[in-house]
Amino acid sequence: MVTRVNAQLEWRDVLGAVKVRLNIGRMAYAVEPGLYAVGNPEETSPVLVSANYKLSFDYLRRELGGLDVWILVLDTKGVNVWCAAGKGTFGTDELVSRIKAVGLEKIVSHRKVILPQLSAPGIAAHEVKKQSGFQVVYGPVRACDIKAFIHAGMEATPEMRMVRFDFADRLAVVPVEIVEWAPHVFLLGLAMLGLSGITGVSYDLSLIWTRGFNVFMIVLGAFLGGSILVPALLPWLPGKAFSIKSLCVGLVLWGILVSVLNLALDVWAMLPVILSITSFMAMNFTGCTTFTSQSGVKREMRYAIPVQILLLITGMILWVIAGIGGSL
C-alpha cells in the first residue's frame, strides 16, 4: 500500500515544526513507516529513504516539488535520521526488512535506494546489498541538495557531503535546551533566593525581595545568556572546549548584570555563580552540535564538571558571607 503525499507543506506542518522545536510532543511526532509517493512515480523513479520523525519527513518532501519519487520511511521510533543512525534504529536490519515489507523489488525495476548521508553511522551499505540486493547510494547531507544531486546523475559535490552548523542551525536547537533545563535552573534560583535572607543575626525575610530577587534574576540571566549567546557566537568565542568558550560570555553577562542591578558587596559572589551556570549550559550544548566527538566531550567533562561544581559552591558561600557582611 502506497500513501500519496504532497511536496507542499501545510500550516499544520509548520505549526507542528514550531511545537517540536519548543519541545512540545517532540517524542511523539512521527509518521507511519512504509512507502510514500510524491508526484507520479513509476518503476524507474528514484527511491529516497527517510526517518519517521515527521520533521525529517517534512524537510525532505518539501524539497521534492516537481519530482516523481518514492519515499521509503523507516521505523526510527520518531527520531531524526542522524540520531537514529547513531542509535542503530536507522540501521541495516530495519532498512532490509522495510524493503522486503513493502515489496520494493516489485514496485521498482532498478535496484538502488538513496539514503541521506547522515544515516551512514547506522547503515552498512555492503551488508544491505548482500541481504536485499539493493545498492545503497548515499545522497547529500541536506535535503535541500537532493534535487541537484538527482539531476547531476546521483553525484554529490564535496560541499553537499559536508555537515554545517550555521547560525540558524545553532539557534534552532536552543529552545529545546532551554525548556529541558529550565526546571533545574528554577530550583537553583529558588535555593539562592532562600540563602539571601541569611544575616549575621537572624533570617531577614525582607531581603528576599531585594537580594533574593536580584540573585534569582542573575541565575535566570546567566542561564538564558549561556543557552543563547554561546550557540549564537560559537565560532567566534575563544577556546576549543565549550566550557572555556563560555568564559567570555559569562564575564560580559556579569558586567551587564552588576551594572543593571545594584549589588554592592554581592558583586563578587555573583561572578562564580554566573561562570558556573554559563559553563554548564555551554558544555551541554555539545550534544546539539554537529562536530563534537564523544572522546572529546568526555575529556572536557573530566575537568569542567568539578570546576563548575566548585564555582557554584564558592558562589553560594560568598553569597551568604556577603549577606552577613551587609547586615553588620
Binding site: 547513531g86 551512514a120 553511522p121 552498512a124 565549550f242 555539545t286 552540535t289 554537529t290 563534537t292 564523544q294
Partner: peptide, 24 residues
C-alpha cells in the same frame, strides 16, 4: 567527531574507532 559512519561502511573493516555521540 566519531560518528562511526566510516567504520560501519568499510567493507574490509580497515577502520576502527569508539563511536558515540559527543553529548554532555
Amino acid at each position: 567527531m566519531e560518528c562511526g559512519a566510516c567504520a560501519r561502511n568499510c567493507p574490509v573493516e580497515a577502520i576502527t574507532l569508539d563511536s558515540g555521540v559527543g553529548c554532555a
